[in-house]
Design a protein around this nucleic acid. Structure first.
Length: 434
DNA sequence: GCGATCAGGT
DNA sequence: CACACCTGATCGC
């Protein structure tokens, strides 16, 4: 998001406030230990990880955004030089540790930036997120939704991370004597590793820098850097290749690999057709010793020689199509912008969800509001209640250096309608890519 | 020499 | 196919 005043996951000069959703590299391009361009707003956990990720970073720039409470921000309009007030709220994005979405409310309307997020139905995190969003938006129009559209295509259907975790444990248990290698990144998949560790009552090896991250995240018992203590190791994804697996197979005994992020179920091509559809969400493959390439094993009896086997299991930290659909149906934004700019048009949110957004969605929300009023039979609900709560006041007073204020605002019916017309104008000119 | 950015790979 | 992230080349300072 670039409003001229606020940037989300963008680090070039020209903004007065910078917001970080999470610490993956594709959202921190331009950030470094030497970055000094302004206050950086992020979750408490992300703030804890930043000095490790960016040594030398000036931590006095960090502004910790507590999840679930409103924060206020006063910026200066570049054109009129007058003061512009915003309030914003962070919501757990359930993507990786510390990841959040940001909901902004100001004179120019209401904007939600999801960052990367997973919206698993029936999960506690989603229940909480839904309640927070409903409460935060009340009857207001969401003018713009910046959406994690990674899997915004009906072809993309995969199970919850809980189900995928069980599949992975099943695979490991079916190889009780083998070495196990799991590919992970510098942040994320901790819940999976914890689940495996607990299910098998076994520590998991990680490389030293990753152990440091684990300790910062509060995991002290389940991980080790001693190879002698365990047969399960998590290695960087860029090290997870046939060569590595084959060498382990050769020197440490029978080895299987697990790639918890492949896309074995179906592939949506640019022409919209599907390739390699698989209902199981688990692919068993083997590493060729000579060519270094991998081939798929058809069926269970396909064991050929001593080639290393590896499994692609779809464990995703992004929402699948049906989860994105549920999310958009909840929010009914006037405008949607995908934050993932793919070469293919297969994941354009407008293509599949155009009917759920547009200016008429503002009217939809007003109708919801009218229904709500009728239910309550109270005239006062025509105005939104003050948004400050006791918890935010306490947490705000405790920190003197973070320059945050908390206050309640009242938004009248008139200002709601004012945003309605602006939303309509935006929609007629916006395209989906940014 | 360093950082930012991009291409190409796993 | 996609993700996250590596390496290496290039550009600008």
């Amino acid at each position: 998001m670039e409003s001229g005043m606020i940037s989300v996951d963008r680090w070039a000069a020209g903004s007065q406030a910078y917001f970080l959703t999470h610490l993956h590299a594709d959202h921190t391009a331009g950030l470094s230990g030497a970055w000094r361009r302004g206050p950086l707003f992020c979750s408490r956990l992300t703030a804890k990880l930043i000095p490790c990720k960016f040594p030398g970073f000036d931590v006095s720039l960090l502004r910790i955004v507590e999840i679930g409470t409103w924060h206020s921000l006063s910026l200066t309009s570049p054109s009129s030089r007058s003061s512009v007030e915003f309030v914003f709220k962070a919501i757990d994005a359930q993507h990786c540790p510390g990841s959040v979405m940001y909901l902004f409310r100001g004179e120019s309307g209401c904007t939600l930036h999801t960052g990367d997020f997973r919206w698993e139905s029936n999960s506690l995190g989603t229940e909480n997120g839904r309640a927070v969003l409903i409460d935060a938006l009340k009857d207001q129009t969401l003018d713009t939704l910046y959406l994690d559209n990674t899997y915004c295509n009906p072809q993309y259907s995969f199970p919850s991370r809980e189900v995928a975790s069980k599949q992975i444990v099943d695979i490991i248990m079916s190889h009780p004597n083998d070495e196990v290698v799991i590919a992970i990144d510098s942040l994320g998949k901790e819940d999976l590793l914890l689940y495996i560790s607990q299910a098998l009552s076994m520590k998991i090896w990680v490389w030293p820098e990753r152990l440091q991250i684990m300790h910062l995240l509060g995991f002290h018992e389940n991980f080790t850097t001693q190879t002698s203590l365990t047969r399960i190791r998590a290695i960087p994804r860029y090290s997870f290749k046939t060569d590595t697996l084959n060498k382990l197979n050769e020197f440490r005994g029978p080895t299987i690999g697990i790639m918890p992020s492949g896309m074995p179920w179906a592939v949506a091509r640019k022409d919209g057709n599907t390739v390699g559809a698989s209902a199981s969400h688990v692919n068993e493959k083997e590493c060729s010793k000579n060519t270094g390439s991998c081939s798929e094993i058809q069926g269970l009896g396909g064991n050929s020689g001593n080639a290393t086997k590896y499994y692609e299991v779809h464990y995703s930290d992004h929402s699948c199509y049906s989860e994105i659909q549920e999310f958009i149906e909840l929010l009914r934004p006037v405008n949607i912008k995908g934050i993932v700019s793919s070469r293919s048009c297969c994941i354009n949110p407008r293509y599949y969800f155009g009917h759920l957004c547009g200016p008429e969605q503002a009217l939809w929300r007003v109708q919801q509001k009218l229904d709500y009023e009728e239910d309550l039979r109270r005239a006062e609900v025509a105005e939104i209640k003050p948004i400050a709560d006791g918890v935010s006041h306490v947490s705000g007073r405790k920190r003197k250096n973070d320059h945050m204020k908390f206050f309640g605002i009242r938004i009248s019916r008139v200002s709601l309608l004012g945003r309605l017309s602006r939303g309509a104008r935006i929609t007629s000119t916006e395209s989906c890519s940014e």
